[in-house]
Design a protein around this nucleic acid. Sequence first.
DNA 1: AATGAATGAGGGTTCATTCAT
DNA 2: TATGAATGAACCCTCATTCAT
Lengths: 229, 229, 229, 229
Amino acid sequence: MAKSGSSGRKAETAGKRRERRDTRPQEIVAAAFEEFAAKGYAAARLEDVATRAKVSKGLPYLYFKTKEELFKAVIRSVITPLFDAMRERMLTTDLSCEAFLKGPFLSFIQELVKSRRVLIARLLIAEGHKHPELTKFYYDHVIAKGRETLKAFIDRGIERGEFKPTALRDFPQLIIAPVLLAVVWRTLIERHHHLDTDALLATHIDLLIDAIRAPGPAPQDESGEGPAR
Amino acid sequence: MAKSGSSGRKAETAGKRRERRDTRPQEIVAAAFEEFAAKGYAAARLEDVATRAKVSKGLPYLYFKTKEELFKAVIRSVITPLFDAMRERMLTTDLSCEAFLKGPFLSFIQELVKSRRVLIARLLIAEGHKHPELTKFYYDHVIAKGRETLKAFIDRGIERGEFKPTALRDFPQLIIAPVLLAVVWRTLIERHHHLDTDALLATHIDLLIDAIRAPGPAPQDESGEGPAR
Amino acid sequence: MAKSGSSGRKAETAGKRRERRDTRPQEIVAAAFEEFAAKGYAAARLEDVATRAKVSKGLPYLYFKTKEELFKAVIRSVITPLFDAMRERMLTTDLSCEAFLKGPFLSFIQELVKSRRVLIARLLIAEGHKHPELTKFYYDHVIAKGRETLKAFIDRGIERGEFKPTALRDFPQLIIAPVLLAVVWRTLIERHHHLDTDALLATHIDLLIDAIRAPGPAPQDESGEGPAR
Amino acid sequence: MAKSGSSGRKAETAGKRRERRDTRPQEIVAAAFEEFAAKGYAAARLEDVATRAKVSKGLPYLYFKTKEELFKAVIRSVITPLFDAMRERMLTTDLSCEAFLKGPFLSFIQELVKSRRVLIARLLIAEGHKHPELTKFYYDHVIAKGRETLKAFIDRGIERGEFKPTALRDFPQLIIAPVLLAVVWRTLIERHHHLDTDALLATHIDLLIDAIRAPGPAPQDESGEGPAR
DNA sequence: AATGAATGAGGGTTCATTCAT
DNA sequence: TATGAATGAACCCTCATTCAT
């Protein structure tokens, strides 16, 4: 009789447990992201991560062998999903290149700069040199792919006659360089001096397009989504 | 002649001591710069700093009350002398604005990006949020002044009729945004994928000028110092 | 039978853990008492405390945030239970005041002086000025209450006609002043010169009562417990 | 000519130096007393001692091999001179014993309790057990001699018929027990609760004499110096 | 699977003591 | 003799990691 009761409870418990067991690593990684972002790698305490994840001090070690492993999991977890959608849109959009840059793309980087995810950038800049394979991972999955996408996008603009062929083809990084600046400003300098990063990024895109726009009939604005300026 | 005067010896003695007292802090700061640059603030051990400076474990504390004080001293020592010379040249040059940007200014940022001093940038990005006064100091002495100088320079270009009035006036940061990118790339990503930062920066300056150049007679290149491309 | 119930085992488990969690602090405090008493606050090493408690170097910090907290815990653990029993007896005894002083009270201070607990007195005298809250705590819980109790006791003796009204009412501290002397002697001077503290204290009580006894019929000794003289 | 001038200066310098050299140990000991009294043995820094003595950090080591030696010198320097005068007066006074106790003796201990020298008591209580020969020294030069003097004084009172023969003869310490209490109170508890130590000591002497006064003709007050009550 | 008490290596900081000048 | 820069042992405290329960 003790058995039947406890088995019934067990089943229920096991169900809940399994459910929780599946999400726990994510919860721990999320908590770790917050701690790392707030305090940096070295100053983040695993006990605080556990507390934030509402989990016991020892549990993270069930999923991540060391603090470093957890850190890597955090980096990996944050970066991937974000950029794939944008990449897809860049390569399949019906808009003119200029309209896309001034519309969806600008909106995307404006929001990106304001999102908490970019805090990961500071983490990578701070700790990346100690985790080369992590930096490699980040390079492969974000930077290289982004670079390719941007380059393809520019080339399409050139093919279409929208853009002049310029050296920007060789350095697509220049398109997102101000994003890095904006992120650093927001996390470090904003408290001392305000910067309107939306306008900064808009200005950047405007100037860039002015620099590479092919001479010819003035383009009309086809953009449906007007970003904040 | 060494014997010639006790007063001479005294002066010599005092001199040696004073020299040491003035020299040692610099040596320690230099060693600390290397350690911080290599490992980051938290991971750098003061004992290693001392060892690198060929000094005992306790000596740094004679000159710097805490690790943080030492860190600040490092930042200050690297930052302060960095931009003053360039600022002076920007405001007093005889060159046209375009020629100055493509000549001396480009050379400056190209070299800057390659110098070891910019490792300090990574330090600030990584640890700055924990040292608000330090960030304030950096903002006041580097960013704010640099921003003013750049803005004044652009305005002069506009007054002279070289440049169109553009929103770049409001965001002079855009001129050096790629510098930040280049620094991060060199310190983190370079080992995975080479980036020709000289060419990147040159391209950036070219595009920027193309974007803001006033229509009219094509300017002739007055620049004496052709930067590496 | 050990297998008989998982619920039983759970309780047992929780029991063991709870027991440990409740026991360890006491063990550490006990070990700390010994170290502090032997070496003084500053000279006592927390590692030695841990070793004495058969515990790792870091464990004390799990229960006491700092060395000072541990010190306070030691003081509190020794002080609090010390005088409450005696206070109760003083206020409720059936004995005449003189009989009580010469009997139970004398015995109490005679034993007190010989107990290891009074080593704490030396600690407080030596380090108290650095821990004002601690001294306050000691004053509130021991000195002030003791003073009140003694005063009430003397007043009762006066009301009953046993004692003359004297200025002792205003300075009940005088009743226990020799206790302090005896403690210091035992911990410092005894090795150089023996002092019979039992007899010292007995003499003190005798003289004090002679000084304040009201003239009249000689009191008869009602004391059941004859103290060592 | 350079010689004559420098030799003249030398002589002057040497004179000043010799003068200073003779008093420096005393100055250092005095400074050390202040530091030890204020912070306790372990927390007192030799550098602060040197600074207070207006001497370089290294100089104390010319006179005292270690911190401990300096501590011993401090203890020794403070204790001796104070009690000899009182001892002399006790043994040679023309006053009655009671008058002497209520007059000069009471004044003496009242002032003693208020003097900075008694801070040494706390030092000895705190550190004495680590320096047995120091405690021995103190016992021999202060306590033992004081005990003898007090005992001789009481005996003289008995011989003269002023005092009854009591056990106080065997425990002359009881006469000064409240002094210890007063010292501890002043240094530790006074900030929390005021105690009129003058009155405390006066009450103590009064009660003590009441306890041991031989029955007979009431003594008249011959005391010339009325102490504060 | 989960807990949290326990471990112990490691690092920042202090300061008595030394010694070149 | 006097200085004060320099040394280095020692100690407090933290926290990643382990493991009995």
